[in-house]
Amino acid sequence: MGKTSIFSPEQQAGNLSSKVVAALERLSATFRVLLWNEAKQHGLSPIQVQLLIFLLYYPEEKRTVTHLAHYFNMTKATISDAVKSLESKQLLTRKITEGDSRSHSLHLTKEGKAMARKVERFAIPMLDVVSQLPEDKQATLLENLLQLIYQLNQADVITPQTMCQNCRFYSQKNGGHYCNLVKSPLKAGDLRVDCPEFQFPPAEELE
Rank of each mutant, 00 (worst) to 15 (best):
D128H: 14
E98T: 14
D100W: 02
L108F: 07
M126F: 13
E61C: 01
K40M: 14
N73P: 01
K62P: 00
L91I: 01
T109L: 14
V65D: 03
A69S: 13
T64K: 06
I96Q: 13
L92V: 11
S80A: 15
A123G: 09
K113L: 06
L108E: 10
I47G: 04
S85E: 13
S105Q: 09
K89L: 15
L106S: 01
I96Y: 06
D81W: 00
T64G: 04
H42P: 02
I79F: 00
T66L: 08
L56C: 04
L86A: 08
T78E: 05
Y58Q: 13
S105E: 12
F72K: 11
T75W: 04
R94M: 12
T78C: 03
H104K: 04
S105V: 14
E60T: 06
T109N: 14
S45L: 14
K89M: 14
V49W: 02
T66A: 10
L86P: 06
E60I: 00
E120H: 10
A116E: 05
N73E: 07
P125N: 15
D81Y: 00
V119K: 02
K110D: 13
E120S: 06
E98D: 12
A114P: 01
A114L: 12
L68P: 09
K84P: 02
Q90Y: 11
I47E: 12
R117P: 00
A69T: 06
A82E: 10
L68T: 06
E87W: 03
S101D: 07
